[in-house]
Structures are given as structure tokens and as C-alpha cells.
């Protein structure tokens, strides 16, 4: 996925600031202000253009936008709060603000809450996890099949008579695309 606007914005900002500083030092403040105004106007036009392009579907969404779709659930937020409270409780015990009995009672309560919420979060993710595992199994199976196919192909080539034109052609032998990749199967597994 491509991400065109941020570098453009950065380049424009730096160019505008540098231009303003240079003109400010050489010509005067008023021209520097015009440079800033010009840069701001160009930036606004470019950003509006990018906005309209996104709106009409002529540009792809950024990786961050796609990744951010997986926002944390309410249980995850509660889990974080309970874990933070547990950390605070440890701290307060350390500085002697809480008795050992109270600490034991509250700690047990927080831990039970945390356990319950972690289970709830796991359950909430069960569907996605099953889907990920299914996809993983498919990819691994595909990778295994591809590796087997390549091995068989390589075996067949090695058993073929030496008078084959491909084997006598040095260009063909050195072509990385046509050469068998013995690391491809583990790599595919890793990427899966």
C-alpha cells in the first residue's frame, strides 16, 4: 500500500520554512511571510486534493488506517485498568499505605478480576484466532505442496539426459528466476 501524502507534506513544510528563513534573512520579514502564506496555501490545496481522492476512492488507504481497525474492546480496556490498579496496589504496599490484610484481600479481588477479563478477551478473540489458525494451516499446506513440487521438479531435472539445451546454456543456469530455490519452503513457512 502506498502512502504518498506524509512525505509530500514534510517536504513542503521544510521547503516553506527554509524558504521563509532564507528570504527573511536576505529580503525581509514581509517576503518571508508571503513565502509562509504560499506554502500554507499549496499545502492546503494538496491536502484537499488528497481528501477528495480518498473520498472518491481514487487512492488506497494507508497501512496504519487498515491496522487501526482492530481497536481494543471494552474488556481489554477494563483489563488494562485492573492491571494498572494491581500495579498501584503493589506500590502502595511497598510504601506502607495499606495493611497486609487489606493488601491480600484487594490483591485477590484484582487478580480474580484480571483473570476473568483476560478469559473474556481471549473468548472475544476466539473467532479471529480460529480464522488466523485456519489461514495459517492453509498457507503452511500450500508452502509444503510448493516445496514438494519444486523438489520433484529439481529431481526430474537432475535425472534428465545431459544433452538438454537448458543445461548447456550458461545464461539459463545463472538466471536466479529459473534456478531452484532450496530455501523457499522454509521461507514460505516462516512468512506464513
Amino acid at each position: 500500500m502506498k502512502r504518498p501524502p506524509p512525505p509530500l507534506a514534510l517536504v513542503l513544510s521544510v521547503a516553506t520554512l527554509a524558504g521563509a528563513a532564507a528570504t527573511g534573512a536576505v529580503v525581509g520579514v514581509e517576503i518571508a511571510l508571503l513565502v509562509v502564506a504560499g506554502g500554507a496555501m499549496l499545502g492546503a490545496i494538496a491536502l484537499l486534493w488528497a481528501s477528495v481522492q480518498s473520498l472518491t476512492g481514487e487512492s488506497s488507504i494507508t497501512l496504519e488506517e487498515a491496522l487501526s481497525l482492530g481497536a481494543p474492546s471494552a474488556e481489554e480496556e477494563q483489563k488494562r485498568a485492573v492491571l494498572r490498579a494491581l500495579k498501584d496496589l503493589e506500590f502502595e504496599r511497598g510504601v506502607g499505605k495499606i495493611s497486609e490484610e487489606d493488601y491480600a484481600e484487594l490483591s485477590a479481588r484484582y487478580r480474580a478480576d484480571a483473570r476473568r477479563l483476560i478469559l473474556a478477551v481471549d473468548e472475544g478473540h476466539a473467532k479471529e484466532r480460529a480464522e488466523v489458525e485456519r489461514q495459517l494451516a492453509i498457507r503452511l499446506q500450500q508452502a509444503d505442496e510448493e516445496a514438494k513440487a519444486r523438489e520433484e521438479e529439481a529431481k526430474a531435472k537432475s535425472e534428465a539426459p545431459p544433452s538438454s539445451p537448458a543445461a548447456s546454456d550458461p545464461d539459463a543456469a545463472s538466471d536466479p528466476d529459473s534456478a531452484p530455490d532450496s530455501d523457499s519452503a522454509p521461507a514460505a513457512k516462516e512468512s506464513a
Binding site: 488528497a50 473520498l55 487501526s68
Partner: peptide, 30 residues
Amino acid sequence: PRLLQSARYGAYATAGLTLFAVALLAYAFI
């Protein structure tokens, strides 16, 4: 997400236009 991205660019553009207006007024003062 596509609309959100569009809104984000729109927000930046609005901020850019405001900077443009302030620079113009500052120019008028100078």
C-alpha cells in the same frame, strides 16, 4: 476507513488555510 482518511486530510487542509489567513494578516501588519 477511506472516509476517515479523507476527513483527516480535510482537517489538515482546514489548518493549512488558517495558517494562510494568519500569514496574510501578519503580512498586512508588516
